[in-house]
Nucleic acid binder design. Sequence first.
DNA 1: CGCAGTGTTGACCAGCATCAATCCGTGTGG
DNA 2: CCACACGGATTGATGCTGGTCAACACTGCG
Lengths: 250, 250
Amino acid sequence: MNGTAFPRLDPSILADNGDALKFCSTCAFSQACLAQGMDKAALMDLHMLVEHVGPLHAGEHVFREGDAFEAIAAVRAGTVKTYTIDRDGHEHVLGFHLPGEVIGLNAIDGDRYPCNAVALDTAMLCRFSFPKISVLAARLPGLQQHLFRLMSRDIGTATLLAGDWTADQRMAAFVLGLSRRLAARGFSPDRFQLTMARTDIANYLRLAPETVSRVLKRFQDEGLLKIDRREVELSGRERLQELAAPILRS
Amino acid sequence: MNGTAFPRLDPSILADNGDALKFCSTCAFSQACLAQGMDKAALMDLHMLVEHVGPLHAGEHVFREGDAFEAIAAVRAGTVKTYTIDRDGHEHVLGFHLPGEVIGLNAIDGDRYPCNAVALDTAMLCRFSFPKISVLAARLPGLQQHLFRLMSRDIGTATLLAGDWTADQRMAAFVLGLSRRLAARGFSPDRFQLTMARTDIANYLRLAPETVSRVLKRFQDEGLLKIDRREVELSGRERLQELAAPILRS
DNA sequence: CGCAGTGTTGACCAGCATCAATCCGTGTGG
DNA sequence: CCACACGGATTGATGCTGGTCAACACTGCG
């Protein structure tokens, strides 16, 4: 619970610079920058300012609401949940962040993080000082473009979730969304583990945990998926897609 | 209804360049950039790439979903509504944009606008070619920072609206939010016109129009505000703030 | 005047939340 | 090894918020 806010670089990685680079080059953030037209030299610059964070264990925080904002971070492994607690004590889950995804972008406007970020399982991250990456982005058009796109995408997904969809639509979109994002990282799209509790899913989809339970049960009864504890297997992808279509816009 | 997509520069403004500059310098976008540390020369560069759009009349579109994305735009006068139509034909209002606010940021990720933008009353805009402003942003740290902040802020407001709030909370947050944004532009915070129809408010807050009507009525009965047709007067700001507090985080 | 668009009001209903009880997998201690 | 407790998940009963449907009022306009 009382994880240190943004732990510093693991010394064992610092020790061997060559290793650190090789390590980081697997980071999807770098990959995306490359695809965005950055050359090798530029990528090297990016690697110069990255700090490897972790491994964090389930329940340890990456940052907390109110912490001074200094850096964004890319998830390299594991799952990170971002959330806030409103004044009635209710948790609002802003998102679940898989490997390759970036957290902290909503903190840029303001000098403090507006939410908490916690590891749901063992997680590794790359930390990018925001002032530094801004300066670098001015030199590297590909990086600037990549950041713009990431933020733009976040606006889009946030507004999609904001729509007034039924519990079934939300649930279908959630499962399908996970499936697609996992597939994009090379994991199986049809069979995966939920790294978050039912309560977390409920707080993310703005449903009661009981509703999450019931909808999943019904989906199983109707053959859309098989679920055992946290293990999910998609068996009725078409029907799920029909349900989720208006949300995922596909 | 059938407004041209992103009408070109009004020739009467082009005619007198000095006038155009004076005109644009009132633009809140420029103001904000100045505040962000840009100098006069930089501002001049920014003015070089701006195109003035409008006046657009109520119902004319700035852009439509699926149009090629080329530019973001700052509202200079009037109100612009952004919205999408889902496959069931239901309208989802993404936002109402007042003078000084920027639209199109959610289009950067992707080569097409993901939503429509329509003028609710007579509106004027400044259009910024996105490729051009990107290049400029790389030269002007203040501009880059400003863009980052704008997008970050949009992520935040989108996620706030996504929460599961009651009709009363949403309505209070909506009215108070308008009041504050208008106040920031120098308009009266206690007395203003709603430029949008009840249906638009409903589609924005994910409520039925009937609910909007009823909640406003009740707010009036309880002395929180006076409303006559589209004219609003806030009379119980404290109580509204209480209601909206968890949403507006203030 | 009559019509159309927008807004309001009322009656009814459905979806989901809430509350409460129970189940189940896991860890713990005797 | 078993008994027990605990947290998360499930299931059932009930109620409330807000949606839906329908009728009507108001305003502006041809």
